Simulated assay, not measured.
Amino acid sequence: MSITLEEALNLVVRYAPVLNEEYVPLAESVGRRLTSDIRSAFPQPPFDRSPLDGYAVVAADVASATPDTPVKLQVVDKLWAGMPARVGVKRGQAVRLMTGCMIPSGADAVIRQEDTDLGVEIVQIFRPVASGKNICYRGEEYGTDALLLRRENRVDAASVAVAAGAGFTQLRVRRRARAVILTTGDEVRQPGTVLPAGKIYDSNTAYLSARLHQLGVETVAALTQEDDLTALSAALRRYAGEVDLILTTGGVSVGEKDLLEQAVKAAGAEVIFHGIDIKPGMPTLFAVLGNARLLGLSGNPFSAVVPFELLLRPMLAEMTGDPEPLLRADTAIAAQGFDKASPSRRFLRAFCKQGRVYPPAAQSNGQMRSMIGCNCLIDVPAGSGAIRPGDPVRILWL
């Protein structure tokens, strides 16, 4: 007996396991959620430094400098970035600095090199500079024990830069979900092989692999399995202890060779539901097999797309503690119509821009070409008639 989509959503979230935490190198943390706050062990910058090439000076010494009456100062040292300050600056002196250099003691400003004659032993200063000018002070960005990255934040390139600048080489994040894709059907062949009469190339694996990658899931294996109960149940048992998600396509309907539910039970799984009152995707199956969660999808490409997007994304959000995969609902105006009535709840692929949504005419469950460029699903309630241009519709952003 079919259940509602809301009931199915509640079940997949209820049975979704929370993934473990792990420490990973900074580059591998991108796109994942932090599981602990990151705090600084030292201030940033860790010393007073120069943001430009110039000369460290005492501002009072150059207060009267003009292009016509330059102030002359003795250059007592020259520093490059990474060198410690070796001597202090006294009245009448200057230290040549490059960008990033430590400010020597005694200096309270940095004069730009453009405002000097670039003197080596004696430098002429042509403009005054205010005390404190052109100095990045110690702790200016943050102090010791400052909160740098908050728990549950998604790690991005800026987060990695901040962590690296604070001396971190690893971050503690939620482990990536691991998945296996199992495409079933005697008729399925992989692209790149000879296509005998009566066979079709497998597009489901390509779609699911690409979407899992986009959602940050690691695909451990992608297999094609003929309609054989023993081999299918063996394949399910094999991966039950290795992955978090098992995605299958095909074999979930009521045909003579639709063997997935039998294979799932033979593998020792608990079937949570089989059938959702939506179109397409009605025969979708969800089961628990060891530590893995199995989502059995239709073999028709778009019939696999809809429950994948509707169910896997909230399940993945629960597993990873990351709300990013969740579908966002919105309202738009139909710019094009859809002539068929919808006795049951129906989802249409569509493209939405500036509040107007365009469902392509080709909505067949077996077609994927019209999915190109689509960025949303139109959620058509059960019992609806045809959609007319100008009608308000509920959409889910993909």
Rank of each mutant, 00 (worst) to 15 (best):
R154K: 12
V13K: 05
E121N: 15
L212R: 12
L245C: 12
T230M: 10
R112S: 14
E218D: 13
V13M: 10
D48H: 06
Q363P: 00
G216L: 04
G241D: 15
R238G: 07
R238D: 07
S370W: 01
M282H: 15
P104S: 10
G54N: 07
E256R: 01
E187D: 09
K199F: 09
A222Y: 01
A179T: 05
T284H: 11
G383Y: 09
R174H: 10
M98W: 00
E140H: 04
E187V: 08
N204V: 06
N300M: 10
A107G: 06
V12K: 00
G198S: 13
A334G: 11
Q367G: 00
R49Q: 13
R96F: 07
S50A: 14
Q225R: 02
N300Y: 07
H274A: 15
R33G: 01
R33C: 05
R127T: 03
V57E: 01
A304W: 04
S253W: 05
G132F: 05
A166M: 02
G132T: 09
S50R: 11
V162R: 14
V155W: 03
T169C: 01
L295H: 07
L245Q: 08
A335S: 10
P51N: 07
R238L: 11
A65S: 05
G290I: 04
P104V: 03
L259K: 07
Q170I: 03
D244A: 14
G385W: 11
E121I: 06
L316A: 03
T184M: 09
A179L: 02
P17E: 10
A157K: 14
A85W: 05
A177E: 01
T35S: 02
Y201N: 14
Y142H: 06
A235H: 03
E218H: 05
E152M: 02
W80N: 15
K353F: 10
L236M: 04
E261S: 04
L396M: 14
G216F: 00
C136G: 03
R293V: 03
V110L: 12
I200T: 10
L289A: 02
K265C: 08
G383D: 04
I272S: 14
L232N: 04
E318R: 15
S64A: 13
Q354F: 12
M98R: 04
V58F: 12
L212K: 13
C136E: 02
M282V: 13
K257R: 12
G355S: 08
I372N: 06
A65I: 03
Q367D: 05
R14S: 14
G373I: 13
L247Q: 12
P196Q: 07
M83N: 15
T169R: 05
G281T: 04
N204Y: 04
M98N: 13
R293F: 08
S29A: 15
V62A: 12
T184P: 04
H274S: 15
S36Y: 00
S159T: 03
A197G: 09
V18H: 04
E7G: 11
E324R: 12
E6F: 02
D339C: 10
L26K: 01
S253P: 02
A292S: 12
T66K: 06
E121C: 13
F347H: 11
